[in-house]
Write a protein that binds this DNA or RNA. Structure first.
Lengths: 177, 177
DNA sequence: CGTTACCTACCGTGCGGCAGGTAGGTGCCC
DNA sequence: GGGCACCTACCTGCCGCACGGTAGGTAACG
C-alpha cells in the first residue's frame, strides 16, 4: 500500500501498474490481483487509507491544543513536506487532475479528501474566536483550494521555494489567518 | 492541434495517443508522426500554441483599456470557461500534475505558461495605481496559484459552482483585488 | 523529377486481467 | 493420530489490446 501510494503521488494513477508495483514489493502481479481484483479497487484502497491517515494526523494537531495560527502552519507544512519528498503532489491533487479517466469509486474518495480537509480547516478557523457568523466553510474551501494550487504550481516548477513564497503571500493578504 | 489540445485537457498527456488523435481528425497515426516525429515534439507544439494563444488573448484585454478589476474578472472567467467546456482543466495545470513523467521539452513549456501568467497579472496589478512598492510579482504568482487551485478543486468535484465560490472568497479576502 | 502528404503493415513493449497450479497451514472427523 | 478437506498466499503462463515508433510505398502536384 505504501509503495502504491508513493507511485501514484509520483506518476499518477495511470503511472501505477500491477507489474511495477509487484516488482517494488518483491512479489508477482497476479498476487496483487488476489488482494485487489481490479485497479479501481486498488486505487480506492490507497485513497481511503490516505484520507484516514491524514484525518488522524490533523485530528492529532487539534487534540494537541494548537491555536489557530499554529494549526494552519502545520497544515501548510504537510503539503510542503510532500513536495520535499521527491517533488510529490498530494495524492488527491494528483488524482483530481486525472479525474476524467478515473473509476467512479476512486473519484468518490477524492471528493471525500476535499470534504475532510474543508471540515478540518473550518474547525480551525472557528478557533479564532469572536469573528462572528462568517462563512467558515466557504473560507475553508478557499484555503484548501489555494494551498492545493500552490503545491501544484511549485510541483510544476520543481521548486519548493515557490510554494513557500505563495503560501507566505496568502498569509500576508489575509486569506490564511 | 485543436483536437490534441482538447484531449490533453480532458485526459492528460498520458491520455493522448497518436491513434486516437488520428481517428479524431480522419487520418492515420503514421501521418501525425510525419509532422511530429515524437510524442514529446507534439506535446511541446500543443503547449506552445496554447501559451501563445492566451498571451495574445490576455494582451487584448489590456489593449482594450480594461481597468484592474475588470481585467482580473476576465482572467478568472477564462479558467471558468474551461471548466464549463467538458470539465476540462487548464492545459498547463493538467501537465503540471503529470510533470514527473513529461519529456523535458514539454516541462519547459509548462514553466513558460506560469511565467507568462505571472507577468500579465503583475502588469494588471500595477494598474491599481498608488499602491506603492508592493511585491507585484509575488502577489501575481499567488493569484495565479490560487486560481489554478480553485480550478483543480472544482474539476475534481465536477462542479463549476465550487470554482465560483472559491474565487469569490479570494476576492472577499483581498487576495484578488 | 522531387517534394508533399498521406498510406499500409509491422515491431517490440507494457498493460489489466484471468485460469489454473501449488506449498504450507488449519481444523475436523473417523 | 492419520487422513482429508479446505483455506491462504502466493506462483507460472497466458490473453487481447493499445501504445509509440519505423520502414517503405504511393498518388497528386509543381
Amino acid at each position: 500500500m505504501e509503495a502504491a501510494r508513493l507511485t501514484v503521488q509520483d506518476l499518477g494513477y495511470g503511472g501505477l501498474s500491477f507489474r511495477e508495483l509487484a516488482k517494488a514489493v518483491g512479489i508477482k502481479s497476479a498476487s496483487i490481483h488476489y488482494y485487489f481484483p481490479t485497479k479501481g479497487a486498488l486505487g480506492e484502497a490507497i485513497m481511503r487509507r490516505y484520507v484516514e491517515h491524514y484525518a488522524r494526523y490533523l485530528e492529532g494537531i487539534l487534540e494537541g491544543g494548537a491555536d489557530r495560527a499554529t494549526a494552519l502552519r502545520r497544515y501548510t507544512d504537510v503539503f510542503r513536506e510532500t513536495l520535499l519528498n521527491g517533488n510529490r503532489l498530494c495524492l488527491a491533487g494528483m488524482l483530481a487532475a486525472e479525474r476524467n479517466e478515473l473509476p467512479a469509486e476512486v473519484r468518490a474518495e477524492v471528493v471525500a479528501w476535499g470534504e475532510m480537509n474543508e471540515r478540518w480547516i473550518a474547525r480551525v478557523l472557528a478557533l479564532g474566536g469572536a469573528a462572528g457568523a462568517e462563512d467558515l466553510r466557504g473560507r475553508a474551501r478557499a484555503i484548501f483550494a489555494a494551498v492545493s494550487g500552490a503545491q501544484m504550481v511549485a510541483h510544476g516548477r520543481h521548486e519548493v521555494a515557490v510554494y513557500d513564497e505563495v503560501v507566505a503571500t496568502y498569509r500576508a493578504s489575509g486569506l490564511i489567518p
